[in-house]
Nucleic acid binder design. Structure first.
Length: 719
DNA sequence: ATAGGGTTAG
């Protein structure tokens, strides 16, 4: 042949790789053009080319073309049948694949392995193992397929037992087998075992194999042995994309996203996985904008996003609540036919629900055939974040398998929508069912304990956490600190806070606030100063409110004013109504009524009713009728707009004994249909909550309680 | 044909 190719075989090879390329990029048209070309050239009957064409048609689901091709092969061609089984498994038609398998007159190891791994992928472990045992061609690949299947279905121990049988049978493991075994060690978090596997790897001379080293890096990474991971990486003779991607991920795990990005930018080669990883990590770090930017660059560079990459980007869009962009991606995903994937589905459900569209989320949820726990959890979470707790509970009660995340999601919903009684009820049920709560679940329940100020329940939860041997992470530590502070046990709160190895903005806020509100004003201020000195956390709105509150309660008026002045100029935080109220209160308490009034007048927005009330109460203490009169007028004005103003005004009149004014205001409120929000306080006795309301809701034992109070009062006054 | 990445809660 007079072509540019040295020989006919290399020409065929070139054709095959061209087809493979078209197939991988989903460019069927290009493939079809080649098909016609081959027919004309007469090389179509070349077996390699024909098979490649068949695979291409199968992968792009061009079924009529594929069937046409099958007819061209006479009888039951083993390789063709294998291709058909492979395609059916990929499409999820397991029964069709099995039918083909059963009808085959002869099979090879590939045939068997396809069925074994196909069954494993669908979670049908026992059936798969049955075929494994019946398989007459037990080579490395069959063994490895069995092992990985078990590991991926959460039976790593059985996977390792199969590995032991492999060694006994005399078959030599290959690099893929070792990778699977290392995955098993990772899944079982067994670093020791991983190290003994390493011994075996060295003994069999696989320690320089790229794939094996890649798996070893991942093992070290998961076990947080970063130095060792780096060592493995450094001593590799050749590194591939996977090695670079793994080491990039290590820096992310170490909290150094910047270094990871540097590696990503300087890697000799990037594949779709490297892109996936860096995008996913930016997303997990909350930098969704950068994730999107990278996604756009990736698409521009012609890299086809993987399913996981779409999942990450949908997750990023969900966090940004960009419904429209999310819908565009959804349309694209539908066009390329992967909208029924569970990973994609979970992200889509999350996207719609985060944007408040639970009905669209439910539509996606219903459209997915092979639902897994995560998908169910996403839908439950979707309802929970939108306060549709009944729907969430209904799904929860009717899901086929629950895990601890399902429980946690439901509980989190009840916490967010303040149904605290239900929180404890469901949490108890969870414990009784034998499920182990995760750290986020503990955080949620601690938040509920803090909200109802139940020290007893909070301590009980703390005990459970200790019993499980959970290390505090930032969230859990913060939740505990907050719980103890809000329940009045500031000592324990401080203890937990001091022991935390990592603290974020929330941790500092909670502790500063806890100290301030428990009356430890000086300690609160000292902690705020310590934070500014020793941490990278910047002061926030809530911290400054606590700081002002602390100054107010210590009588450190000038210091308070100093902080208040520094808010915008130094910390870049614009004071809100509550900050002004706090400062007005501080000034009024110390008798600096004129300054307080000035401050109210200088506010760029309407003051809170409480600010005026604080000033009025100061006027009462320091007997300044002039300012009182002006402030009262402002309060009346404000009262027209909200019920809080009316209530305050009526209380002020009441304390001044101006009862006619009081009844006038109450009448006005009734006319306007304004209702005073009911005050409530509660106390916990032997793990039972007793609530007391300021208005009609009366405690069932209020008569007895009042009798006892009367008795105590008399004992205190006449000893 | 068998490995390495990705989805849910704070």
């Amino acid at each position: 042949m007079k072509t540019a190719f040295k020989s006919f075989t290399s020409y065929i090879q070139r054709c095959v790789s061209l087809l493979q390329n078209f197939s991988a990029k989903g460019m069927v048209t290009g493939g079809t053009v080649l098909h016609c070309h081959f027919l004309k050239k007469g090389v179509f009957s070349e077996r390699f080319i024909a098979i490649r064409l068949l695979i291409m048609y199968l992968e792009s689901r061009k079924l009529s073309e594929a069937n046409q091709m099958v007819k061209e092969f006479n009888g039951f061609d083993l390789v063709v049948q294998n291709c058909l089984i492979n395609a059916n498994i990929k499409w999820g038609n397991l029964s069709e694949a099995r039918k083909l398998f059963d009808e085959m007159p002869e099979r090879n190891e590939i045939t068997w392995t396809l069925l074994i791994s196909g069954l494993m992928k669908c979670g049908r472990v026992e059936e798969s193992m049955l075929y494994f045992e019946r398989n007459p061609f037990k080579g490395v690949v069959s063994w490895t397929a069995g092992i990985t299947g078990l590991v991926k279905n959460g039976s790593s121990f059985h996977g390792l037992k199969l590995f032991a049988r492999l060694i006994e049978s005399g078959v030599k493991p290959n690099q893929v087998t070792y990778s699977s075994i290392i995955s098993a060690c990772i899944e079982m978090s067994d670093f020791e075992l991983g190290m003994s596997v390493l011994g075996l790897i060295i003994k069999t001379g696989f320690e320089n194999n790229v794939s094996v080293c890649n798996s070893l890096i991942t093992l070290c990474l998961r076990m947080h042995e970063f130095d060792l991971a780096r060592k493995v990486f450094d001593r590799m003779e050749t590194r591939d994309v996977v090695s670079w991607t793994a080491i990039l991920d290590m820096y992310v795990e170490m909290g150094n996203l910047g270094e990871a990005r540097r590696i990503f930018d300087e890697m000799p080669k990037r594949n779709e996985v490297s892109w996936s990883v860096i995008i996913a990590r930016y997303n997990q770090y909350g930098d969704n904008i950068e994730a999107l930017k990278l996604f756009r660059r990736m698409v521009r560079e012609g890299i086809k996003p993987t399913i996981s990459c779409f999942a990450s980007i949908l997750c990023a869009l969900a966090s940004l609540e960009s419904l429209q962009a999310g819908k565009n991606i959804h349309a694209h995903i539908t066009k390329i036919g992967i909208e029924r994937d569970v990973f994609i589905g979970s992200s889509l459900v999350d996207l719609y629900c985060k944007c408040g569209e639970t009905r669209d989320g439910r539509f996606v949820f219903d459209s997915i055939k092979n639902k897994n726990v995560v998908l169910w959890n996403s839908m439950i979470g979707g309802y929970s974040m939108n306060g549709q707790m009944d729907e969430a509970k209904y799904l929860f009660d009717n899901m086929p398998n629950r895990n601890n995340v399902s429980w946690g999601t439901l509980i989190g919903g009840y916490v967010e929508f303040k149904q605290f009684d239900t929180v404890f009820e469901v949490f108890n049920e969870m414990i009784l069912s034998g499920e182990t709560p995760t750290k986020p679940t503990f955080s949620s329940v601690l938040c509920a304990c803090a909200s109802v100020a139940s020290l007893e329940k909070g301590k009980d939860i703390h005990g459970k956490i200790l019993k499980l041997g959970f290390q505090y992470d930032v969230y859990l530590g913060t939740a505990l600190t907050d719980m103890y502070a809000k329940c009045g046990d500031i000592e324990s709160s401080k203890q937990v806070f001091d022991r935390m190895s990592e603290r974020n903005e929330f941790s500092w806020t909670v502790m500063i606030q806890g100290l301030a509100e428990s009356g430890f004003a000086k300690e609160s201020l000292a902690l705020f100063e310590e934070m500014k000195r020793n941490s990278s956390v910047a002061p926030n709105e809530l911290m400054l409110l606590s700081v002002l509150f602390a100054c107010s309660h210590c009588g450190l008026v000038d210091k308070g004013l100093e902080y208040f002045g520094a808010m915008e100029s130094v910390y870049g935080i614009r004071p809100k109504g509550r900050h002004y109220t706090c400062v007005v209160d501080m000034l009024s308490r110390s008798g600096r009524l004129y300054e307080a009034e000035e401050l109210i007048n200088s506010m760029p927005f309407r003051p809170e009713a409480n600010a005026l009330a604080a000033l009025l109460s100061g006027c009462k203490t320091y007997k300044d009728e002039e300012i009182a009169e002006r402030t009262a007028r402002k309060l009346v004005e404000l009262a027209e707009k909200n019920s809080a103003g009316f209530v305050l005004l009526s209380n002020i009149y009441a304390s001044a004994g101006r009862w006619t004014d009081v009844s006038n205001i109450r009448k006005l409120m009734r006319e306007k249909g304004l209702k005073k929000s009911v005050g409530c306080s509660w106390v916990e006795v032997r793990n039972h909550l007793h609530s007391f309301y300021s208005e009609d809701g009366i405690h069932s034992k209020s008569a007895e309680i009042n009798d006892i109070l009367e008795l105590l009062r008399s004992e205190m006054t006449d000893p």
